[in-house]
């Protein structure tokens, strides 16, 4: 078990969003969390990534308890978070952004190896390496955010809303790049509003509603589930 989240309760200030959320991810799995707006999908991600400290519950990563660690400490353990807002360094070039992604790696040659790997994965970023991140289009920024998340050679990637604010064909290409990462042996937890798309590509899925895990199972089964079809797919 790579990541085990048990009975997680979390929220903002006095407002509790997550209620007893539990989930598990094995190494090499592609797992999706789907659910409507305000279900607590992003909150789950932020809590695992250490940006929100949980009220109770535990997060165990690689057999190590990481509950309540700061975001930078979680990043050092090998979890990389690609946030919905991307949080790029807009006044830095593409290459500088990528190097910042490898901040936890100290050796220069290892950083360059990672950089070559990311450039191979996203040739588009290699073409634009001298461009400022703030001047790129939405799809390119998303690629850069995912590429930056790859730079630290993480064992788990948390990807929040990869299709957020993107045109449909760009969404397809972003999902295709995640597919390539999975083929390279990466473990990915992805959060999405686009239920059809997510359940089509992932291995397993969790359905989050009102801060609780409503359903869980193989993505293919979930896509066939009559409740999911009725509520999310409208068929």
């Amino acid at each position: 078990m790579l990541l085990e989240v048990k009975n997680l309760n979390a929220g903002y200030g006095y407002l509790q969003i997550l209620r007893d959320v539990s989930l598990q991810i094995d190494k090499g799995e592609y797992v999706g969390i789907v659910g409507p707006n305000g279900a607590g999908k992003s909150t789950t991600m932020k809590t695992i990534a250490g940006l929100i400290s949980p009220m109770s519950g535990s997060v165990v990563f690689n057999g190590e308890d990481i509950t309540g660690l700061s975001g930078s400490a979680v990043a050092k353990k090998g979890i990389s978070f690609v946030s919905e807002e991307m949080n790029l360094f807009v006044n830095m070039t593409v290459q500088e952004n990528l190097y910042m992604g490898a901040y936890t790696i100290k050796e220069k040659h290892l950083k360059n190896e990672r950089l070559d790997f990311v450039f191979e994965l996203f040739p588009r970023l290699a073409e634009r390496k001298k461009q400022l991140a703030g001047t790129m289009s939405g799809g390119e920024r998303k690629m850069l955010a995912i590429g930056r998340g790859m730079m630290s050679n993480p064992s788990l990637m948390l990807v929040d809303e990869p299709s957020f604010g993107l045109a449909p064909q760009l969404t397809t290409s972003v999902f295709a790049s995640l597919e390539v990462l999975i083929k390279n042996g990466m473990t990915i937890l992805v959060v999405e509003q686009n239920v059809t798309k997510t359940l089509a590509v992932t291995d397993r899925g969790y359905v989050l509603e009102n801060g609780k895990v409503g359903l869980e199972g193989n993505s293919a089964d979930l896509a066939e589930d009559s409740y999911v079809r009725k509520v999310f797919l409208g068929v």
């Binding site: 700061s70 930078s72 990043a75 990389s80 949080n87 790029l88 807009v90 901040y103 730079m151």
Partner: peptide
């Protein structure tokens, strides 16, 4: 430039 971005790449 982005304090959250800095935190998620592992900057203390």
């Amino acid at each position: 430039q982005d304090i959250t971005g800095a935190e998620i790449v592992g900057i203390d």
